[in-house]
Computed example of a mutant assay.
Amino acid sequence: MQSWFDLTGKTALVTGGGGVLGSAMAQALADHGARVVLLGRTREKLERAAQRIQARGGQTRWIQGDVTDAQSFRQALESIGDVHILVNAAGTILPEAMTGPGRSLFELSLEAMREVMDVNWMGTVIPSLLVARQFVARGGGVIINVASMSSFRPVTRNVAYSASKAALLNFTQWLAVHMAQHYSPGIRVNAIAPGFFLTEINRSLLVEPESGQLTARGQAIIAHTPMGRFGEPEELGGATVFLASDAARFITGIVIPVDGGHLAFSGV
């Protein structure tokens, strides 16, 4: 059974590969033998993530690209070559697309809301459709999308992010069925739904920058997470490797919460 989790000979493309969660998922794939390509907009983040993976003996390289721009992504894909595993980890949260102190519902930035939808929704659709052309020609491949707790229920204040992640989960299920029925049952599409992890895009919402204490929002999250803590990025690795590997060869169209029990907890 151990051989089921061996990804040697596979190339994994991880979008958002310079981010906290994307790089952790990439690390897990590299630890299990995959050649990992990190794709993102920011060179410095990509370089740091690649160096960490290489320091642990992993095979990796990085390439700059924009998941919201089909031509940019197509050019990046041409330089990468064959891809066997696609992890769509690119995502964003923008304060201007959230309600909260000093910003009512009627003061939301429509431009920011469009950008969140573009990155989180179309930034998954575009890579999926372009890489899937390879999968169809080969008769197999794996897509792993990064959903969210807000894919199931909207998170207060975060209207654009919640809507984008709900759309992403629906797309995961739709594409899984479509690929299996119309192209090949060897093309699998699944998702991982992280609970609450501290990342560069949400830290200021959950932790006071000066004191390091939890904000009221951070306290509410911990109170509704039965394990009583935020997730550690590397804790996404097990689900990532599982879905990418032959251990999940009869699994498609599902979402795995990695959330410390948050989704199961009713609050009482």
Rank of each mutant, 00 (worst) to 15 (best):
M1V: 13
S3M: 14
L7F: 01
L7R: 08
T8G: 10
T8L: 05
L13F: 07
T15L: 05
G17N: 07
G17P: 05
G17Y: 00
G18V: 01
G18S: 04
V20M: 09
A24T: 04
M25E: 03
A26E: 00
A28D: 00
A28Q: 02
L29Y: 00
A30Y: 02
G33K: 02
R35P: 00
V36G: 00
V37M: 08
L39S: 04
L39N: 05
G40F: 06
R41W: 01
T42D: 10
R43K: 14
K45T: 13
K45R: 14
L46N: 04
R48D: 08
A49Q: 06
A49L: 09
A50N: 02
Q51I: 09
R52I: 05
I53F: 05
Q59V: 02
T60K: 05
T68V: 04
D69F: 08
R74T: 14
A76T: 03
I80V: 11
G81H: 08
I85Q: 10
L86K: 05
A90T: 05
A90R: 01
G91Q: 08
G91F: 03
G91N: 12
I93M: 14
L94T: 12
A97K: 04
T99A: 03
G100N: 10
G100S: 08
S104I: 06
L105P: 09
F106S: 12
E107T: 08
L110E: 14
E111N: 13
E115D: 12
V116I: 12
N120F: 10
W121N: 11
G123L: 11
T124H: 11
V125P: 09
I126L: 09
S128F: 07
A137E: 15
A137Y: 06
R138P: 01
G139N: 10
G140M: 10
I143A: 09
S148K: 13
S148H: 13
S151E: 09
F152I: 09
V155N: 11
V155F: 11
N158G: 12
N158W: 13
A166P: 08
A167Q: 02
A167W: 12
L168A: 07
L168K: 01
L168V: 05
F171E: 03
F171K: 00
T172G: 07
A176E: 02
V177L: 15
V177N: 12
M179Y: 15
A180R: 13
Q181A: 13
H182M: 07
H182C: 06
G195A: 01
F197M: 02
F197E: 01
E200A: 10
E210Q: 11
I221A: 05
I221R: 04
I222S: 10
P226G: 10
G228Y: 08
R229D: 07
E234L: 13
G237T: 05
G238C: 10
G238A: 14
T240K: 00
F242E: 01
F242A: 01
L243H: 00
A247T: 02
A248M: 01
R249S: 15
F250Y: 15
F250N: 11
F250W: 15
I251C: 14
T252E: 06
I254K: 09
I256Y: 00
V258P: 05
G260F: 04
G261W: 11
L263W: 13
A264H: 11
F265T: 06
F265N: 07
F265Y: 15
S266T: 15
G267T: 07
